[in-house]
Design a protein around this nucleic acid. Sequence first.
DNA 1: GCCAACGTTGGC
DNA 2: GCCAACGTTGGC
Length: 154
Amino acid sequence: MPRHWLLKSEPDVYSIDDLARDGRTFWDGVRNYQARNLMREMEVGDLVLFYHSSASPPGVAGVARVAEAARPDPTALDPASPYHDPKSTADEPRWSGVEVEFVERLPRFVPLGSLKAEPELSEMLVTKRSRLSVQPVRPGEFAAVRAMGGAGDA
DNA sequence: GCCAACGTTGGC
DNA sequence: GCCAACGTTGGC
């Protein structure tokens, strides 16, 4: 059984439409240890809610899938990258990312306010831990959000 | 643009 | 190891 996750991206930087255009992308730039550790747990085939943060409104825009498990994030070693981390080295990479692929754009965007208003989702982390950019999602939560977004059977 | 929440850094 | 200072995230 695949696990389920939520990944946040600012749509001004990289949106679900960008992923739809690209087909797949390497999820780089995560610089939080808890988020990194969660990404390292991801396995190929795991399903991802694609969340637009710092948007108006914020919310879930689509679904992606883990295409490749975690590997070192090369932007940490690149001095020209905004994600450069001088404490990361090639021998001991500090940060990781995963490859994700586009699955679907939800027919209806599911705003954060709707997630918060749904009793079934009262324990969902995105409604409580607003600053964690990579989150585990329960199977029931994943299904409920897809249904709220008007998606058909998977 | 503001600010609350919260993660990280670094002095001691 | 503590904790103050600081920086960042992200909702509003």
